[in-house]
Design a protein around this nucleic acid. Structure first.
Length: 614
RNA sequence: GGUCCGGUAGCUCAGUUGAAUAGAGCAACUGCCUUCUAAGCAGUAGGUCAUUGGUUUGAAUCCAAUCCGGAUCACCA
């Protein structure tokens, strides 16, 4: 399904926004050259997508490989023959690009001229903006986080927030004009539950009097509601009611329903309490958002937007897209699209969830005229989002096709799903506090920053803790559900944020001793490790473009890990400061500087800071 | 039941517009700090890519069937 959507976007205009700087990329250049070479030497006009160019596997000689099978099959050619004639012609035509070629089965492996890469390094090493595309003013809205105001943020929200934030930043980096938005579900039965419980049990307590963070404070009353409700359900069942009846008829539930009606009627004292409790929650959220570096350009409140969708119902009825049933409820028939019939307005005239979302989509478009509107929402709402888009399409809304559901898998624990009723929900604030503690312990064990003052240490712990957490949640393909293993998440070795942060700190340590000097010439022969690192680093802009096209930050996480690994491998085998010649030292300093830039840019786009020492 | 998603090393994950001997990290084992930060590097071991059949010069990748797991199909949000 996801793949289909991506394809649709490709056919549409999404990927056509590919920026000019991509044509500078080595792989693209090779493709273009080979396209021409094949035309010249074989007289075949191949389409660009027919050419498969990939990195040469490490066990073979070469850097980039043209896979010949496709051509062989389509044009009924002999791989040996066309391989050597393409290879020969390419090396002759572009001697400054190709050093040599070799042919193995259907694979034509090219070695890139060292000088070509050295030139790239020379022009790029001091560019802190490497990877950034010029602004092209395509507008995108990214909605993420969207919490309920009855309880604090948890691990699931974190995956959502990190993903949404990162995808927004990636879009900006590639030239889009992005609005980050958040919808706060501030009304409804859930907040009324917390309100009732507070009225019944709090005796006037507030976050100030208890010293609690506001969102946790309110969340506790939500828990208290459920506890009281449970007791009353049991009483009801004991009195002979069915479970469903007992749930509905419980006095505390009745009171909650009454409160919701009073809220909708605008009863002043109810609104006052509602405002007050939401305010506590917002203060708590704000603190957490600041801690994790989340930010929004626009916040929508459900209490202000939930009525907007009703206009749609009228329009839909007029257009014949919706129909009215005898009881007065209004529906849309989506069975032709393979879905069901869907209610859009209750018989009492109140709107349902989908109706609200229709209204909000319209409002967002009125305000921002987006071309793409990305919703970062868990995959349990795939059906809902499909319906939303389908209805908007049927209503001929111009923005309907721009809706993209960035559907991510739920976070589970090794023990199974997180369940609030069983108390297995991992609280965001608690988790971050734990991570910071682990960062502190490990840092103290290693004892490398003993000269840091208290403030610098706090900053470092925070950087490492959030680096570990964000990387852990972002390194997995968003659309797959993931298992959060607490043991693993605090790991600082291997495929982790701190490993990459460490690599960056190492480079900074070198660059503090000596920075590259522009005037010095560079060696133009590359060691194997230098070359591999340089070729990988060169792909950075293409990686970003891929991450954007796929709406997938894990592409960046995987890539930056590869870069860090390659650097570390190079680092242990070759000395930078004590390189054999000045020219080599210069080259390695620049390579180190460019690697640091790529690491820093990648990590920044994932929302992760990098320390200069750790 | 309908629709959709997933199943790759002990664990967590890459690889899926078909392409070379299926890759990482963790865990296990072996080496490497008088040399730019060992939060590192090098190596060993670990696989019936859920199963079966098909298409193909070539399948983890495409098709069909089956098994297993999950999501969803509310006048909840």
């Amino acid at each position: 399904m996801v793949r289909k959507v991506i394809e649709t976007f490709k056919k549409d205009k999404w990927v056509l926004y590919l920026c000019a700087d991509l044509t500078m990329l080595l792989q693209q250049t090779i493709k273009k050259v080979l396209e021409q070479v094949i035309q010249d030497s074989l007289g075949i006009a191949v389409a660009e997508e027919e050419l498969i160019i990939q990195r040469t596997k490490t066990e073979f000689e070469g850097d980039y490989t043209l896979v010949l099978f496709g051509l062989v099959k389509k044009y009924k050619l002999n791989p040996e023959q066309i391989g050597s004639s393409i290879g020969e012609a390419a090396c002759q035509k572009e001697p400054q690009l190709f050093k040599s070629y070799n042919l193995l089965k259907g694979f034509l492996n090219f070695s890139i001229q060292d000088q070509c890469l050295v030139d790239f390094l020379g022009t790029t090493y001091s560019n802190p903006q490497f990877g950034k595309a010029p602004v092209h003013a395509k507008r995108v809205m990214v909605e993420y986080s969207s919490p309920n105001t009855n309880k604090p943020l948890h691990l699931g929200h974190l995956r959502n927030i990190f993903l949404g934030w990162s995808i927004a930043e990636l879009l900006k980096e590639r030239g889009y004009v992005v609005t980050k938005s958040c919808v706060v579900n501030d009304r409804g039965i859930h907040i009324c539950k917390s309100m009732i419980a507070w009225e019944l049990f709090a005796q006037g307590a507030t976050p100030t009097t208890t010293g609690q963070k506001g969102d946790h404070f309110v969340g506790d009353y939500y828990v208290k509601f459920n506890e009281a409700h449970k007791v009353q359900i049991e009483e009801g069942i004991a009195a002979g009611l069915t479970k469903e009846q007992a749930e509905k008829e419980a006095p505390i539930m009745k009171a909650t329903q009454q409160l919701l009606q009073d809220w909708e009627a605008g009863k002043p004292e109810v609104l006052a309490l509602w405002n007050r409790m939401n305010q506590w929650v917002y203060e708590g959220f704000e603190e957490t958002y600041n801690k994790i570096g989340a930010d929004f350009d626009k916040t929508y409140y459900e209490s202000k937007t939930y009525l907007l969708g009703k206009k749609f119902v009228e329009q839909g009825l007029t257009d014949g897209v919706f129909y009215k049933k005898e009881d007065g409820s209004i529906w849309i028939d989506l069975t032709p699209a393979g879905l069901d019939e869907k209610l859009v307005l209750r018989k009492d005239g109140t709107s349902v969830y989908i109706t609200q979302d229709l209204g909000l989509a319209e409002q967002k478009f009125q305000e921002y005229q987006y071309e793409q509107s990305i919703y970062v929402i868990a995959d349990e709402q795939n059906y809902h989002m499909k319906v939303l888009q389908l209805i908007l399409q049927k209503l001929n809304k111009p923005y309907a096709n721009g809706i993209y559901h960035l559907s991510y898998g739920m976070v589970e624990l090794p023990s199974g799903k997180m369940k609030s009723r069983e108390g297995t929900v991992v609280d965001a604030d608690d988790l971050i506090a734990e991570m910071i503690e682990v960062a502190r312990t490990k840092t103290e064990e290693l004892g490398k920053v003993k000269d840091f003052d208290a403030e610098e240490l706090q900053k470092l712990y925070h950087t490492l803790a959030l680096g570990a957490l964000k990387f852990y949640l972002l390194r997995v393909d968003p659309k797959k559900k993931m298992i959060f293993n607490p043991q693993e998440s605090i790991d600082f070795q291997g495929f982790t944020g701190p490993f990459i942060q460490y690599t960056y700190a190492r480079i900074q340590s070198i660059l503090r001793k000596e920075s590259p000097t522009a005037s010095l010439s560079m060696e133009n022969k590359l060691e194997k490790e230098e070359k591999e690192l340089l070729i990988t680093v060169e792909q950075f802009p293409a990686i970003l473009e891929q991450a954007v096209a796929e709406h997938n930050p894990s592409v960046v996480a995987l890539y930056v890990f590869t870069v860090a690994k390659l650097f570390n491998s190079f680092y242990t085998q070759h000395s930078i400061i004590s390189a054999p010649t000045d020219a080599t030292r210069q080259l390695r300093l620049r390579l180190a500087a460019l690697t640091a830039t790529v690491i820093k840019r990648s990590m920044t786009l994932l929302g992760i800071e990098v320390p200069s020492r750790m």
